[in-house]
């Protein structure tokens, strides 16, 4: 269980986030969407502990080592092979080297990278690197995975395949997920719940949508589910209102000054 309560964050000036709250239940797949620059990545960095909020708390029932993180550009160590990169995630957790290497090979194989274990990242394609990063995260048997636009750098076809693999593995291992994305279709097709972050500054969660599409899910097929279109339309109009609201901002400030 991950619970974010009334988190506010400032980088020095006006707060980027103000009173943002959300929750991810055990085994739940949750997405966080919002306008670009609203503070989605910032909120995730607060949860990870890379940023300290000025107010609010993050409650998490998982240990640090049970949390996996996947970013847009997954910085694999360029001087380590695919196998060494994956194994490093395990040895840093205290696993002995031989077991770590065996596990690394197992997970690389499961993600379709058998035969690429000895490649350096520079010699892998974008999709393959993403799979290595995924193997690195999954090999640690996480209970929660935090993802920040992890698929944004992949082209459409590779992306569809990687996403399908992720969903299958996450469902199978009952891993909780918090996914940050700007892709509404992706959010709806993968998640049990979607949170909408309002336009910043002082962004907070303004809407929560439950997605009643049954599991196991096929990320492409679930777009054909009857509830998908309705939810998509609602999410889209709420988001458009948020982005449109940026014009209303000065008016509110004027009002504040007048008051």
């Amino acid at each position: 269980m991950l619970r974010v309560r009334d988190v506010s964050l400032s980088y020095g000036g006006e707060p980027v986030l103000e009173g943002a709250s959300l929750a991810v239940g055990d085994g739940q797949f949750v997405s966080l969407v919002g306008p670009s620059g609203s503070g989605k990545s910032s909120l995730l960095r607060v949860i990870i502990g890379l940023q300290t909020p000025i107010a609010g708390i993050v409650e998490c029932s998982y240990r640090r080592s049970e949390i996996g993180i996947l970013f847009q550009d997954d910085a694999l160590l360029p001087w380590k092979t695919a196998r060494e990169n994956v194994a490093l995630g395990l040895t840093l957790n205290g696993m002995d080297r031989r077991d770590a290497v065996a596990q690394a090979d197992h997970w690389l194989g499961r993600l379709g990278l058998a035969g690429f274990e000895d490649r350096y990242p520079r010699r892998l394609s974008g999709g393959q690197r993403k799979r290595v990063a995924l193997a690195q995260v999954l090999a640690r048997k996480p209970k929660l995975i935090l993802m920040d636009e992890p698929f944004a750098s992949l082209d459409a076809i590779v992306r569809a395949r990687v996403v399908a693999d992720v969903v299958a593995l996450v469902e199978q291992q009952k891993i909780s997920v918090l996914l940050v994305t700007h892709d509404l279709e992706e959010a709806l097709s993968l998640s049990d719940a979607v949170y909408l972050l309002s336009q910043g500054p002082r962004a907070r969660i303004t809407q929560e949508y439950n997605v009643p599409i049954p599991r196991p899910r096929d990320p492409v097929r679930s777009r054909l589910h009857p509830s998908f279109a309705t939810l998509y339309e609602k999410l889209w109009s709420d988001l458009s209102r948020e982005v449109g609201g940026e014009h209303a901002q000065p008016a509110r400030d004027d009002a504040a000054e007048a008051a």
Partner: peptide
Amino acid sequence: DRRLVERITTLGGGRWALIRHVYLP
């Protein structure tokens, strides 16, 4: 590369792991 440092940190690596796996190479 800050991303490498964050990667090792979020994988649970401490100061020594950073030196060994990021700074030294």
